[in-house]
């Protein structure tokens, strides 16, 4: 059966084998709340910038209108992306990092995460200063929870 193995190795030269994972999740155990915080702050800043952006006075000035639309599109794009990123990072913390033992420490853990995730979606739907500020506060709260849980893990 040497030749069969040889044939497989030859095939590999033309066509890469499929990746198969010898783990179920990334078992690196590296968790941090920073990406979510940065994303939430970005969303807040984008909302502020969008609201501060002035509409050009003359609608007929093509160059100014183009510049305006370009800015709006770029800011909305960044806002959208970072709200999605924030949600993703929050869900990783919620589903992977926090365990049942943390529920005793933070009884409202599920509600906090659920509301924060909903706020991410709301920030995608709207350009809303209150919602973005709420999101940043919620994520900061979650980061504080994360720090507390980490501190407890170290003190054990």
């Amino acid at each position: 059966m040497k030749f069969f193995a040889l044939a497989l190795r030859t095939l590999d030269a033309f066509n890469q084998p499929t990746i198969v994972y010898a783990h179920c999740d990334i078992p690196c155990g590296i968790y941090t709340a920073n990406p979510a915080q940065v994303a939430a702050k970005t969303v807040e800043t984008m909302v502020q910038k969008l609201q501060a952006l002035e509409v050009p006075a003359e609608m007929n000035d093509k160059e100014k209108m183009l510049a305006y639309h370009n800015s709006v599109a770029r800011m909305v794009h960044v806002k959208e992306e970072h709200a999605a990123l924030c949600k993703k990072e929050l869900l990783i913390l919620w589903t992977d990092y926090f365990k049942e033992e943390h529920l005793a420490m933070f009884p409202d853990l599920h509600t906090t995460f659920w509301k924060a995730a909903k706020l991410c979606s709301k920030n995608k739907q709207e350009v809303n200063a209150t919602a973005s500020a709420d999101l940043r506060k919620a994520v900061d709260e979650i980061a504080a929870m994360f720090e507390k849980a980490e501190a407890m893990k170290k003190s054990k």
Binding site: F4, D12, N15, P17, I19, V20, Y21, A22, C24
Partner: peptide
Amino acid sequence: IWNFTDMRLKITGHSMEPTLRQGDRVW
């Protein structure tokens, strides 16, 4: 084709060590 004749796989990760190591290829 993939399922019946050409299921070549490359291992990523360490959960099957020492039997299968990272980078091993199996059929």
